[in-house]
Design a protein around this nucleic acid. Structure first.
Length: 948
DNA sequence: GAGCACTGC
């Protein structure tokens, strides 16, 4: 064991502490002997020597050409002679022991800070009293029970020495009696689990499996002949770019410059004979929407809400905004049009700007995350519904807008649904606001009912007639059938491009005798903009274009020249049958009987299927006190809401009566999972926000580790080089830092089996979060190399997702007592020992229930930071247990009071800066500072009317 | 010892 145990830490005897009998890992010896592994332990500041992290944050960064050369360098982690060996029996898995001095310093500093501020101390004391009283009442009244149970499930042999007691404490507002929603029962995912389609969908596609295996074999053969590195680059389709690795990261320069998508699209004219012979203005006249222009405008003038029904190709998405603009609605405010997808928002805006012959970003603009392509001149604004939802946080009445078009509402995306309920409330306050909801035929009536019998306006017909054919029965292998269909069309039907929703076409094409030319183009939303734009390119003469799309194609993405659509009738999302609405939208071939019997009439709205922690927090921050009052078109199930409320309470975003706390309010500023937002917020207090920002960004993108089936061992070895043994979170930080040190190079990524795209996106997200933090006036501080601080901070954000070791690779969830596994890709896996206590980012259910992204924590941290749930079992524990619970309540109250005070002070300062030291007229966004330091928002929008 | 695809801020 290394040196230096602080008195505080001595409670835990390291020898006892580290899971006395180590699990009998058959791999262990191998691992212990591995030199790579013994080097990749957590950098410890006291080991002497600086780590790359320290350098990268404290001074000019050394440009290191290649990670290879440094990863295995002996001074990379500050000298091997100071390192531990991981097989060492006495090694303390919680290497944090040494950091206690720092903790003490920090705590002292914090206390000092608190004492300096008498006002906040008073507020804190008040909060403390209130909370103590509240806790007491809760327990006394029996509203909350302090049911404690012991996690002492180990047998004697495997027994761990530190035991944690788990409390089953519930907030009073979740007493099990309160009803939060009209939907009490869960919503089943499949209409009839025994139906052919459901069975086929579970079975998956055989051809895909076969193809995968075949690919693997090929690659293995290739590997033997190829030099490593080159093949991989080819597979991933990214060029080696070391020559210009110092060049600015794509996205960085374009972000400020505005329209990246617009750039790529510039010279791509449509390609059908129709679009070649007519100007864009002329083409407009042929759209079905154009024929009904006057009628439509009249209905809009006479009604506040209308439902527009029109099929794809009717021109509703592109024409509605222009009609409204031409009719003068833009004089009162923006004409906004929401889309559920980014690509749609961009491409439609582009199309409209062309039709109106204006620059994209001028009169016509769009806004999506990371990209605001609008300006002062903008009158028509396309955006994703998430953007509008975020805007409503700042401007609850959406004052900027005179009209809002909610396009593709029938898709029932989560954001669309929330927005619909929200706007319903806004409409009551703002009689001058117009709402147009567009929908496919099936749902129109529902929308109409939802908006109190709003008139439905049907745009008849479509530009091009569509002939729908169903296959006779559900296809057993949907991929196989769809591919066959494409080729059938290709060799036997007339010209025209094909849109299809699955892969594998190219390969089969080769098997054909002398096939006609076919250009195959994929599209999905994560794809870089330049590649996305390719699908709009004209195919060379004599070549037919096949666009392979995800359900991105279901929306208003209209590609000129498409004559055939092949649809499998399945939605890839867990491969369940899609709804009738989807199927008719996709104009698919799914088997008529199945269409009737096995499809839901509508897709189950996302709001009834997903975790709502985010949404509930958003609604709370918008002032929705009782969720039962919120008008959901389809209310989410009770279970979903109660878990969300509980999670939010456990995180400290909601107080004991279910109201938003200042912490919760700050959390809403971050567009992400509440637990991640909390990590960022607490990291400020822990003074490691620079690092946490990186970790959170990395958690917000799909895995950065590239792991091709055919080169598993190689990629695993590459991944292991990044491992920080105690933490996957820190491993992610490590990867990002190395990427940064290596000039954000794509080539470097490829060599180390990392996805450059994912990393670049992480950087984008990091930049955005960075801006938000600045706006929130949160400090950006680096903790340098003191990674134990980070682990502690992680513990404070994740304590509700903690587990205790149970067996080999097996853990037991502390709160639910469910057995869960460590995912084999975790840095903790095969460590030689398993840390007693861990927290995890998420659970993934595949063959088993796996924890992914895991960090080992000290049980005392769990007890201190997550005292709502845990305490350390000691003699006479009930006394301590009680004390600890109170500590947590008080700690939370202190934090909240402190934040509220900071914020209030800041707001006062800004207000005075703007208006001079005078009493501010309570207007939109003005906040009332109440004597106890909490911030209350006045009721907004009362009596606001505008002429129209 | 291992699942993978997709959407949004």
């Amino acid at each position: 064991m290394d040196r230096g145990h602080s008195p505080k830490r001595r409670k835990i005897d390291p020898e006892q502490f580290s899971v006395a009998p180590r699990p009998k890992f058959h791999k262990q010896d191998h691992l212990r002997a591995s030199p790579a592994r013994s080097r990749s332990h957590t950098p410890r500041p006291r080991d002497g020597g600086s780590t790359p992290h320290q350098r990268s944050f404290d001074g000019p960064e050394p440009m290191v050409e290649d990670f290879d050369s440094m990863a295995l360098d002996r001074d990379w982690y500050g000298g091997e002679e100071n390192g531990h060996t991981f097989g060492d029996d006495t090694h303390n898995p919680f290497g944090g022991a040494e950091s206690t001095w720092l903790d003490a310093q920090r705590e002292a500093a914090l206390t000092e800070k608190k004492q300096n501020s008498r006002a906040s101390a008073r507020a804190m004391q008040k909060q403390k009293d209130v909370d103590a009283w509240e806790t007491n009442r809760m327990l006394q009244s029996g509203v909350a029970q302090r049911r404690t149970f012991d996690t002492d499930f180990d047998d004697e042999d495997e027994g761990t020495r530190v035991h944690i007691l788990v409390h089953d404490l519930k907030p009073p507002f979740l007493d099990g009696k309160k009803v939060f929603t009209k939907q009490l029962e869960p919503v089943p995912a499949v209409r009839d689990p025994q139906s052919d389609m459901a069975v086929f969908s579970r079975r998956g596609s055989r051809v895909v499996k076969e193809r995968r295996q075949q690919k693997e074999r090929q690659k293995q053969a290739q590997e033997a002949t190829n030099v490593a590195g080159t093949t991989l680059g080819n597979i991933m389709g990214v060029k080696e770019d070391d020559a210009d690795s110092a060049a600015p990261v794509p996205g960085e320069d374009e972000k400020k410059g505005g329209s990246k998508f617009a750039e790529y699209l510039k010279n791509n004219e449509g390609q059908s004979a129709f679009s070649k012979s007519k100007t864009l203005r002329e083409q407009r006249q042929y759209l079905p929407a154009f024929a009904v222009r006057e009628d439509l405008l009249r209905v809009i003038r006479d009604n506040q809400v209308i439902i527009v029904v029109g099929q794809t190709g009717s021109g509703k998405t592109t024409q509605l905004t222009q009609f409204l603009y031409e009719d003068g609605y833009s004089k009162q405010g923006l004409i906004g049009c929401t889309q559920p997808r980014r690509v749609a928002a961009m491409s439609v805006a582009k199309r409209v700007s062309e039709e109106m012959e204006v620059r994209l970003g001028g009169l016509v603009g769009y806004a999506i995350r990371f990209e605001d392509c609008t300006s002062r001149e903008t009158k028509i604004k396309y955006m994703t519904d998430g953007v509008l939802l975020r805007e409503s946080l700042v401007e609850p009445d959406l004052d900027k807008y005179s009209c809002i078009i909610m396009d593709e509402a029938h898709e029932r995306a989560l954001n669309t649904d929330v927005l619909m309920g929200l706007i319903k409330k806004v409409l009551a306050r703002r009689r001058d606001l117009k709402l147009i909801v567009t929908s496919a035929t099936m749902n129109a009536e529902r929308f109409s009912r939802f908006y109190g019998g709003a008139p439905e306006f049907i745009i008849p017909g479509r530009t091009f007639p569509v002939d729908i054919q169903f296959s006779r029965s559900p296809c057993e292998d949907y991929v196989d059938s769809a591919v066959k269909q494409v080729l059938a069309i290709h060799v036997s039907q007339g010209p025209g491009d094909i849109l299809i929703t699955c892969e594998l076409v190219a390969e089969r094409l080769k098997l054909l005798n002398d096939p006609p030319k076919l250009s195959i183009l994929p599209i999905y939303s994560q794809m870089p903009a330049d590649l996305q734009a390719k699908i709009f390119d004209r195919a060379p003469p004599g070549v037919r274009k096949v666009i392979v799309a995800t359900n991105i194609a279901e929306t208003s993405l209209t590609v000129d020249g498409i004559m055939y659509v092949v649809d499998s009738g399945f939605s890839k999302l867990k491969i369940t049958p899609i709804s009738q609405a989807n199927a008719s939208q996709r104009a698919g071939r799914a088997g008529q009987r199945a269409f009737r019997d096995e499809f839901y009439i509508q897709t189950i709205p996302e709001i009834q299927r997903t975790n709502l922690a985010n949404t509930v927090l958003l609604l709370k921050s918008l002032g929705v006190r009782d969720l039962l009052d919120f008008d959901f078109m389809d209310p989410p199930p009770q279970d979903t809401i109660t878990t969300s409320l509980f999670d939010l309470w456990a995180l400290g975003a909601l107080d004991n009566i279910g109201e938003l706390t200042p912490l919760g309010r700050t959390m809403t500023a971050f567009p992400m999972d509440p637990s991640l937002a909390k990590l960022i917020i607490t990291s400020v207090e822990y003074e490691c926000s620079e690092e946490m920002l990186t970790i959170v960004s990395m958690l917000s993108v799909p895995s950065v580790f590239y792991r091709p089936k055919e080169r598993q061992e190689e990629s695993d070895a590459a991944r292991e080089k990044f491992f920080v043994p105690e933490s996957d979170h820190l491993t992610l930080l490590h990867v990002y830092t190395q990427w940064k040190v290596n000039g954000y190079s794509d080539g470097w990524c490829i060599r180390h089996f990392l996805h450059p795209k994912a990393l670049r996106r992480a950087k984008e997200i990091r930049d955005q979060l960075h801006d938000i933090m600045k706006m929130q006036r949160m400090n950006l501080v680096s903790c340098g190399t003191d990674w134990d601080i980070i682990r502690k901070c992680i513990c404070s954000g994740y304590y509700h997702q903690a587990a205790k070791v149970k067996g080999i690779g097996e853990y037991i969830n502390l709160r639910t007592s469910v057995t869960i596994q460590l995912h084999p890709t975790s840095a903790l896996y095969g460590l030689g020992y398993l840390p007693d206590y861990v927290v995890y980012h998420e659970l993934i259910l595949t063959s088993k229930e796996y924890m992914s992204c895991v960090t080992s924590v000290d049980p005392h941290w769990l007890a201190d930071l997550g005292a709502v749930f845990y305490s350390i079992k000691e003699k006479g524990y009930s006394a301590r247990d009680k004390r600890v619970t109170e500590i947590e309540f008080n700690r939370r109250a202190e934090l909240e009071a402190k934040m509220a005070e900071d914020k209030a002070r800041e707001e006062r300062r800004i207000a005075e800066e703007e208006n001079g030291p005078l009493i501010k007229r309570p207007g939109v966004g003005a906040k009332k500072i109440v004597s106890d330091g909490t911030v209350k928002k006045p009721i907004l929008g009362k009596g606001r009317r505008r002429g129209f």
